[in-house]
């Protein structure tokens, strides 16, 4: 039970940059390739993850003293599945066109390593406010990564942003195909590692 010693602002920043789900921890990479072929999809999934991550952290933190350690994992699973069902129903009602495209990935949020990991390593050991802020920061970090990746993929692959045409001519079709997703994630991860090492004296993500 190591209690948190960081300030709230540090926690938020840690989730957004220091332990960014995709570019620093290199987890939850599946949706970062699957749904980032357009900004609209990327943002929608990112927002759903912000919601689930924050609510799961809050709930786990609130009931952490009632969970028996031996059955904590099924309990976390149930909590995550509950919130994913809520966002799934909400999106299928109020955002039908997007849901038609990324519905599967909304449901797959249940299996996101990042959400489960934060419930296990942070929310189950910390008080309500730090846990909520940690969840928010992690969620926003994921959202930012999705925005950056899908920005480049949609712009290069279709010449559009949010569906509005910006560049005419022949776009680089490969960028909206799965292969382009790997290229974009890899090159951006390399770029952010470079930024971290060059300007902040970091060691770069190990990808472990």
């Amino acid at each position: 039970m190591s209690a948190n010693t960081k300030s709230n602002w540090e926690l938020l920043k840690n989730g957004m940059f220091g332990e960014n789900t995709i570019f620093r921890m290199a987890i939850s990479l599946c949706p970062s390739i699957a749904v980032t072929n357009g900004l609209k999809n990327g943002v929608a999934l990112g927002v759903a993850v912000v919601f689930v991550q924050t609510m799961v952290n809050i709930t786990v933190s609130l009931i952490r003293s009632f969970i028996h350690p031996k059955i904590r994992i099924p309990i976390f699973m149930l909590i995550i599945a509950g919130y994913v069902t809520i966002i799934d129903m909400l999106m299928s009602t109020y955002a039908r066109p997007i849901y038609a495209q990324i519905g599967l990935y909304i449901q797959i949020i249940v299996a996101f390593a990042s959400i489960f990991a934060r419930a296990e390593v942070f929310a189950s050991k910390n008080r309500l406010i730090p846990s909520a802020i940690d969840g928010l920061g992690m969620g926003i970090g994921f959202l930012l990564a999705m925005i950056v990746i899908s920005f480049f993929r949609e712009l290069l692959g279709k010449g559009e942003l949010f569906g509005y045409s910006l560049i005419s001519g022949n776009p680089l079709l490969i960028m909206i195909l799965p292969a382009g997703g790997f290229l974009a994630v890899g090159l951006l991860m390399g770029f952010f590692n470079w930024v971290d090492m060059r300007f902040f004296g970091g060691k770069g993500a190990s990808g472990v």
Binding site: N170, P171, L172, L173, I174, M175, L177, A179
Partner: peptide
């Protein structure tokens, strides 16, 4: 290969 996937027509 990159070009072929990106610009199949050209």
């Amino acid at each position: 290969a990159f070009l072929l996937v990106s610009f199949p027509k050209l």
